[in-house]
């Protein structure tokens, strides 16, 4: 079978894949993207480009992804259903493919209430499950949602998100199965700090045979400070940071907290590599792209 992207190729070879993340700027400055490209290039197999994350208006993920393509770094274009109806979704996917974008991550999107413009109207015409299915159907049948035969259908490697730390826990595996059924080829998870719960989720997924059907990349975010850890624990929806992690960050002096964060991240990656059913790691170093090279090298990933 032909690989849809280089990330697909890496994963299908059975190599432990590494993806990074690049948040586009709040503005039209291409140099911000170029700087992040330089920090990430060579260390990762692909880079997620976020789509107005936390509902804050930024350069579009399509445009920023195209900058990555031009620089030879493979993007995973994130797309949320918060801001587009099905017409815009299909159109943007075709446009993205024509720009050389080969991976897509299908998401619901953070609610606009958390963003800088909470007065905005959201769309949610289709949900993330149907976004996955739409991309898959375009790819595999060559038709759009109306059944129209497309002149060159986008052929993308399709990703979806999973949050093993959200509730109700038992349903999370059913939801994963549904996403695979809808057409997800790979999964990137929410940041893992609670290893015990992640292990349990992977075990249940394995039992259902799901890890055989999809490549799961465990999400990690290096903590930069104890303050950040507390903020994420208390303010970021769907995040699960056990008290031991907070204590560990608190236990070292301020200057060494970033190093401690990286250590925790390296330990998590080490555990993920040992875990059956985990195909790679997704490193989300939020506005800390400098850390990615160090983590990848110290973890011996590249």
């Amino acid at each position: 079978m032909k690989a849809f992207s280089r990330l697909h190729e890496t994963l299908s070879r059975g190599e432990f894949a590494v993806t990074g993340e690049c948040g586009p700027p709040r503005g039209a400055n291409k140099e911000v993207i170029n700087k992040k490209i330089k920090l990430l290039n060579g260390f990762v197999d692909a880079v997620n480009v976020t789509d107005n994350q936390t509902a804050i208006v930024r350069m579009s993920s399509i445009a920023a992804s195209a900058h990555l393509v031009a620089a030879g770094l493979e993007p995973v274009m994130q797309m949320v259903v918060r801001d587009r109806n099905r017409i815009a979704i299909q159109s943007d996917i075709m446009g993205a493919y024509s720009l050389g974008i080969r991976n897509i991550l299908c998401l619901s999107g953070d609610h606009q209430k958390f963003g800088s413009q909470p007065d905005a109207m959201n769309v949610f015409d289709i949900d993330s499950m149907n976004l996955i299915r739409t991309v898959r159907n375009m790819r595999d049948t060559g038709k759009d949602m109306s059944g129209f035969d497309l002149d060159t259908a986008p052929q993308m490697f399709i990703g979806a998100a999973a949050n093993p730390f959200a509730d109700p826990f038992e349903y999370r595996v059913i939801r994963l199965a549904k996403k695979i059924d809808a057409g997800a080829d790979f999964i990137q998870t929410q940041c893992i700090y609670n290893m015990e719960r992640f292990r349990e989720w992977i075990r249940l997924s394995r039992e259902e045979g799901l890890t055989e059907k999809v490549y799961i990349l465990g999400g990690v975010t290096p903590l930069r400070s104890a303050g950040m850890a507390r903020y994420m624990k208390n303010k970021v929806a769907g995040m699960d940071i056990p008290d031991e992690i907070i204590k560990r960050m608190d236990g070292v002096d301020k200057k060494s907290q970033a190093d401690e964060g990286i250590q925790i991240c390296l330990e998590t990656i080490r555990e993920l590599r040992e875990l059956k059913g985990v195909a790679g790691v997704h490193i989300m170093a939020i506005e800390w792209e400098e850390a990615v090279g160090q983590i990848v090298q110290q973890a011996g990933l590249k």
Binding site: R82, S108, G109, D110, H111, K113, N122, F124, D127, S128, M129, N130, A161, A162, N163, F165, A166, D167, P168, Y171, I174, R175, K178, A182, Q190, A237, G238, D240
Partner: peptide
């Protein structure tokens, strides 16, 4: 809050909607 038809989003924790802690998911 997201009109999801195929299951809860990743922001549902302890039965509460991420958009408003007073709203059940």
């Amino acid at each position: 809050a997201k009109k999801l038809l195929n299951g809860p989003c990743g922001g549902s924790q302890k039965g509460v909607c991420e958009v408003n802690p007073d709203t059940p998911c």
